[in-house]
Simulated scan of single mutants.
Amino acid sequence: MTRRATDGQQRAFFLWTIAGTSLIVAAAAGAAVVEVFQGTADAGTFVWGMIGIAALLESLVLFAVGLRLRHQYLNQVQSYASRGDYLPDDGSRRPRMPLLGDGQATQNIQHQNPGGN
């Protein structure tokens, strides 16, 4: 279960990487896209402008799909099996449960004594 959730998160990041690359292509074709919309593009500029428009649309779709995958990952119910093992005892006599997620993270919270030593 954890492996599947992590794969979903990695797919979202992968899609966002491709979307960013498509945005770079769309930005490179920016002037051609403007000429296509103005109607002043010649044949070569028209083709390059259509590539830019397609890259822009592709990046928007990939970004939306990545958001959907990330949303599914964040709303997935975590179980005891997907949380990982309990963390080793540090002598504080407090239970140290693993954080939600893939079980690889550790707690970084410093518990301070309210009495103030």
Rank of each mutant, 00 (worst) to 15 (best):
M1N: 04
R4A: 13
R4M: 15
A5W: 15
A5C: 09
A5G: 06
A5L: 15
D7H: 12
G8R: 12
Q9P: 10
Q10D: 12
Q10F: 13
R11S: 11
R11Q: 13
A12T: 03
A12I: 08
F13G: 09
F13Q: 14
L15V: 04
T17P: 15
A19V: 06
G20S: 04
T21K: 14
S22H: 13
L23D: 14
I24G: 07
I24F: 10
V25P: 15
V25K: 10
A26Y: 07
A29C: 06
G30K: 04
G30V: 02
G30R: 07
A31M: 11
A31R: 06
A31T: 03
A32W: 05
A32K: 06
A32C: 02
V33C: 05
V33R: 02
V34H: 07
E35R: 03
V36I: 06
V36W: 08
Q38I: 03
G39T: 00
G39M: 05
T40M: 13
A41C: 00
A43C: 01
T45I: 00
T45A: 00
T45V: 01
T45Y: 01
V47R: 02
W48D: 05
G49S: 00
G49F: 01
M50K: 03
M50Q: 03
I51N: 02
G52R: 00
I53P: 05
I53A: 00
A54M: 05
A55D: 06
L56P: 05
E58D: 12
E58H: 10
S59N: 02
S59W: 12
V61W: 14
V61E: 10
L62W: 13
F63E: 14
V65W: 15
G66Q: 10
G66P: 10
G66V: 01
L67R: 04
R68K: 09
R70I: 02
Q72K: 09
Y73M: 05
Y73E: 15
Y73C: 08
L74N: 04
L74W: 10
N75K: 06
Q78F: 11
S79Y: 08
S79P: 07
Y80H: 10
Y80L: 14
S82G: 01
R83E: 13
G84L: 09
D85W: 09
Y86H: 15
L87Y: 09
P88T: 00
D90W: 10
G91I: 01
S92L: 09
S92V: 00
R94T: 02
R94L: 14
R94M: 14
P95V: 09
R96Q: 06
R96H: 12
P98M: 07
P98T: 00
L99I: 07
L100C: 10
G101D: 08
Q104M: 12
Q104L: 14
A105E: 11
A105G: 01
A105V: 05
T106V: 08
I109H: 07
Q110D: 09
P114K: 00
P114W: 05
G115V: 05
G115H: 12
G115C: 07
N117E: 15
N117P: 15
N117H: 14
